[in-house]
Design a protein around this nucleic acid. Structure first.
Lengths: 269, 269
DNA sequence: CGTTCTATTGACTCGATTCAAACTAAGTGG
DNA sequence: CCACTTAGTTTGAATCGAGTCAATAGAACG
């Protein structure tokens, strides 16, 4: 495994004021006062470089800080007693990790770097103090928790009801949609240092089958896949295969949350 | 389908002051001031009786209220484009539903009564006004969202990595553990008007297989199952089959959140 | 240049699905 | 009070999607 701490997506300049990007993102779903913005920007944050496979936190750990992904990717994983691994979520740049530990004493899952990653570490003490000063900021972060929960529910649907092919397609769609929302992957290419084993563990299939599914997605020209680089060739097709609709991501969209929502497929009583 | 609005678990007296039970539950994880308690108790709430299969909310609905389950069960479901249903969570007495809509404009999933159910409806306006007055209350409900997310993650693990037998056992364990935490099911019997099709859709298996799995759980004498009544005969066995550990539920336990946590099964780097 | 990951392929197996039918229990209406 | 209906459970048989095992091929690392 290549050990490198070089940021993978962002150039040095963009890394400069890490909280400003978070601020910009939060600001799209809420109106923050000048005080709020200042308080947020003033949060103390130490930068931590993670090498591939290194963990930010482990299940059971007592928690005293949260993280802000500055560059790279982290996955969140849980294991069964029998030692099988399930990836329960993937965090990309500008995502918060371990936010739930503000409310719960311990991590309920591992948080691990996929490739080299950079995380801003924010101590609970300072974070809580800032939140106590602002109801609006509290709501912002509570909303982050809510969106996180909505994404988890979609993963449950994905694992429970979709074919292996659809699951993998859906996962790729989600990542691309989320990255585009933070102005990465505008070219529909996503650079993520995962292996097919990671894809398998995120979609609940075996690595062998993940390989076959990826080959199928390539065959139909929905994606190109070179190690660490997924290139969406046909977004409409991939969306269709993955049964993907971005509603659940609660992204701030130009239309301002209109009735684009995919309703329930079931008759109302 | 039998249409009845009779409460199923609780006698009339217990139904009397519905918010007091919620208060008691929240109070076990946080210290609420007298003002907080009063404000919470003063929340306006209208009672809504749902008949079986009736929905409290549908995916895509604009939301202006939250619900508090007073009696019975609701499930939360999402559907794929192909019309397959996945139950993404089950809410029992004293659970809040649609709490996420305080932060997000629309429901991302359906919320449907399993049998006859009683729900207290709390308008967003009043709810938000109360929360604005109290940081402690805000944290309490934020914590509810966090725990909800933690449960979803365990469901992802359950669906992704466990056998059909384990999934069903795990689901039953979770329900019993949650009910016991609110002083229902103390006798390890859970009275829930679901069908085997519901179990199937909650665990991502077919109804036929759900039936076979349930028969197996009966055969090994882990449970007894008559329609609408699950009776845990051997808790230790059921826990073992379901690979269940209650950590993720973040229940207030007598030991006060000690290091009972099941750590990560993976080596730390 | 060997070691170690990762990707790929083939053969075999198995858990789970699907389809179909039978059975049970509980209404419903004549 | 009994035939009829309906929802839910149970059973069997055939099938299939996906897992497992095993071996090979590449690519990157040191």
């Amino acid at each position: 495994m290549k050990i490198s701490t070089r940021p993978v997506q962002r150039a040095g300049a963009e890394m400069g004021r890490p909280l400003s990007r978070l601020l910009r993102r939060l600001d799209r779903k809420a109106t923050l006062s000048a005080d709020d913005r200042e308080a947020l920007s003033a949060l103390p944050m130490t930068v931590r470089y993670l090498s591939p496979e290194q963990s930010f936190a482990r299940a059971g750990d007592a928690a005293d800080c949260c993280g802000l992904v500055l560059d790279g990717y982290l996955y969140r994983q849980k294991g069964t007693g029998a030692g099988r691994r399930q990836i329960v979520g993937i965090q990309t740049a500008d995502d918060l990790v371990g936010l739930q530990t503000l409310l719960m004493p311990r991590f309920d899952h591992d948080i691990v770097a996929i490739g080299p990653a950079v995380v801003g570490v924010i101590p609970h003490t300072a974070f809580k103090a800032t939140l106590r000063q602002s109801q609006a900021l509290t709501e912002c972060f509570w909303r982050e928790t809510s969106v996180d929960a909505a994404i988890s529910r979609e993963w449950i649907l994905n694992l429970g009801q979709r074919s292996a092919l659809a699951r993998v397609a859906h996962l790729i769609c989600e990542l691309v949609a989320r990255l585009r929302a933070v102005d990465l992957a505008q070219d529909m290419k996503l650079s993520i240092p995962w292996t097919q084993a990671d894809v398998a563990d995120a979609t609940g299939i075996s690595t062998v089958h993940a390989n076959r599914v990826i080959q199928e997605l390539r065959r139909v020209k929905a994606i190109a896949w070179r190690e660490g680089m997924v290139d969406v060739l046909d977004w409409a097709l991939l969306e269709r295969i993955g049964d993907f609709s971005p509603d659940y991501l609660n992204l701030p969209d130009a239309e301002g949350d209109r009735i684009l929502w995919r309703g329930s497929p079931y008759p109302r009583d």
